[in-house]
Amino acid sequence: MIRFNHVSITYGNGVSGLKDASFHIPRGQFVFLTGHSGAGKSSILSLIFAEQKPTEGEVKVSGYQISKLTAREIPRLRRRLGIVFQDFRLLEYRTVEENVAFALEVTGARHESIPNRVMRALTQVGLASKARGYPKELSGGEQQRVAIARALVNDPHILIADEPTGNLDERATRGIFQLLREINAGGTVVVMATHDMELVRDTGFRTIELKNGRVVYDSGVDDAEAAP
């Protein structure tokens, strides 16, 4: 599903974002990316959703080779992904349901199908009753749930979460994490970057640890290599 093969990123100013990273994430896996700020977690995530291309090596996501993606293919890849950020990235002037519907509208989904799909996604994240509310009327945890609903509404193969609990309190963090587990249980690959080592330890999911742009630990290296 996701394969990194000796991937490096060097920015224009000579700074390395990632050095010789290799790993494989098979279908259905939940993976934590851990490491300090600047370790390379966000670089890996941005490569997965093709925000940038590798300087060296190869990244393959859901059948797409990132370094060879054309401008037209990038939206097609992103429609197979769901992306969640620490700062939620919701549009304040749209209601909760409009924020979720937005992801369907921009991909040209049939208008008649949109309300049902939106309600299904909001029900999944437990916010169906707040569909008509605005993001500013919701708590941080609820806003992140809306962002997850938006990421889910296109039935993505992969869900990318960049520090999704970074702005949340303990209770909300547990709630969001539980939601991500449920999504993963449905067969969606979840790749989550986090600083929360307690969360990582409690779950026992595969962990890829990064330090100065290098993969220094991968708890699932045997499973990953064995996967088809």
Binding site: F49, P75, R76, R78, I83, L91, A103, V106, N154
Partner: peptide, 17 residues
């Protein structure tokens, strides 16, 4: 700008944006 970046992240084409 935020709206444009969200549009791109959820897979909108440039012409749609």
């Amino acid at each position: 700008a935020k709206e444009i970046s969200i549009m791109r992240l959820v897979g909108a084409t440039n012409s749609y944006i």
